[in-house]
């Protein structure tokens, strides 16, 4: 039994909820490594991936997750859709609702938009990222990666580095890691820290080496070059010099510290290629694998709460 109808954010989840998802996801990791990866758990159910903001990785991950569980999966790229022209989000929601989907995976460029949509439909809604607000499955897949690598998901020191201000990944991860009782740090230039960050239950650093000291986990965030250069950072090369993760800066973390990144990476901006590709430290490929398993677990749990004959 899972106590939620939708997955709108980490904020609504309790620590046992998170553990429940990760435990189930562990079993799907095993399944996904077999030759026959298919189950029939979601047979007969329709999953629609509704992406108002394009994201090949996340969309494919959700698509694969649904298909491996036996659901009928449909992708709707709303950026290209005529439905988008002059139609409000709520109209779109009502139109889709009339087609009786069971699971709606939504990404939208506005914070709160996925929750708004969830109010208007009868099916289960999964937030695949809303504005700068939350990206819960990313935080869950990061948590699963850490738990498998470190053998636990508590009492770890975890640094999140980069564009905290604009990142929904950072928000969801801060919530998730705090709920699991870890020590969370954020490291960024002041222009990329959101107002009031010190009240999020994190330690705030503007210096990489100070923030990375004795960390178990280093999470790097993507820098959106086009949007930030000149406005929040002077140049990517200066950013790399001060806040880019290099082997030298990583040396102050624990010897067995792992390096994570939600992708896609800008090598030479937020992370040095040498670190990104170091198979002893970087778990970036593993995060992608965990992504499919975590999304399968969430789809499975939410499907279990759907009415008998909706």
């Amino acid at each position: 039994m899972f106590a939620h109808r939708h997955l709108l954010g980490i904020e609504q989840l309790s620590a046992p909820d998170i553990s429940q998802i990760l435990d189930l996801a562990d079993s799907y990791v095993a399944l996904n490594r077999q030759r026959d990866k298919r189950t029939e758990k979601l047979r007969g159910l329709t999953q629609i991936n509704l992406f108002f903001e394009s994201s090949t990785r996340t969309q494919i991950s959700f698509e694969l997750a649904g298909k491996r569980l036996g659901a009928d999966v449909m992708n709707m790229a709303m950026q290209a859709s005529s439905m988008r022209k002059g139609e409000t989000l709520i109209d779109t929601a009502l139109t889709l609702n009339a087609m009786h989907p069971d699971l709606l995976v939504v990404r939208h460029h506005s914070s709160g938009a996925v929750a708004l949509l969830a109010e208007k439909v009868n099916c289960a809604v999964l937030n695949a990222g809303d504005g700068r607000h939350e990206h819960p499955t990313q935080a869950l897949l990061d948590a699963l990666t850490i738990r498998r690598r470190k053998g636990r998901l508590q009492r770890l020191t975890i640094a999140i580095c980069g564009d905290i201000a604009n990142s929904r990944v950072a928000r969801s991860n801060i919530l998730c890691l705090n709920k699991m009782e870890n020590r969370v740090r954020v490291i960024a230039p002041p222009t990329l820290l959101p107002a009031g960050i010190e009240r999020f239950g994190v330690e705030v650093f503007t210096d990489m080496k100070a923030g990375l000291k004795d960390c178990d986990v280093v999470m790097m965030l993507r820098i959106q070059n086009e949007r930030l250069t000149g406005a929040a950072i002077p140049s990517t090369r200066e950013y790399f010099h001060r806040w880019g993760l290099t082997a030298e800066k990583l040396a102050v973390a624990k010897d067995d510290a792992i390096v994570m990144h939600p992708g896609p990476m800008n090598r030479g901006v937020e992370i040095d290629a040498e670190v990104a590709d170091d198979i002893t430290r970087s778990v970036i490929q593993e995060q992608v694998e965990m992504g499919v398993a975590v999304r399968m677990a969430v789809l499975d749990l939410l499907a279990g709460n759907l009415g008998g004959d909706a």
């Binding site: 914070s111 709160g112 504005g131 700068r132 107002a195 009031g196």
Partner: peptide
Amino acid sequence: TSGEFASRLGLPSVP
């Protein structure tokens, strides 16, 4: 308005 609350909601804010 800029502050902890707007940051948690992920809304663009003005100081």
